[in-house]
Design a binder for these strands. Structure first.
Length: 111
DNA sequence: CGATTGACGTACG
DNA sequence: TCGTACGCCAATC
């Protein structure tokens, strides 16, 4: 009975999948885009559920507001997150995104 | 159905 | 400037 309804997660997934190559965004930005600004924790929850999602969610492009890779430990391999980001031209140093402000992608503005 | 959790963010001391 | 406390809201146990 594949009766799935549009849940909070799907909205987060959609936005995350819309993140362009070589760009990153923050949990708060997504939460704000969904209208629930302040509920940044929900975005984190959604990402956790992304593992169960049928579609691939580039969660490595989502970091916290300071550009810190707080969610790297939730990946199959912690170093995978940095590797993917570096692979997209994003420099990562000590679990932090370099030039975060420059590569930051805000759905509220871009969309 | 109530309590707990959670990959954040902001406020306050 | 740094550390701690609280709020957000939905999902899971």
């Amino acid at each position: 009975m594949p009766k799935k309804e549009p849940s909070f997660f799907e909205q987060v997934f959609e936005v995350v999948k819309l993140i362009p190559y070589g760009r990153v965004t923050s949990y708060g930005a997504i939460a704000n885009y969904l209208g629930s600004k302040g509920s940044s924790r929900m975005v984190g929850w959604a990402m956790n559920a992304s593992h169960t999602s049928k579609e691939y969610i580039p969660a490595h492009r989502v970091v916290n507001r300071i550009g810190l890779l707080t969610g790297k430990h939730h990946f199959t391999d912690p170093k995978l997150m940095e590797k993917l980001l570096k692979s997209e031209g994003i420099k990562v140093k000590k679990d932090a995104v370099i030039n975060f402000k420059k590569v930051f992608w805000d759905p509220n503005i871009e969309l």
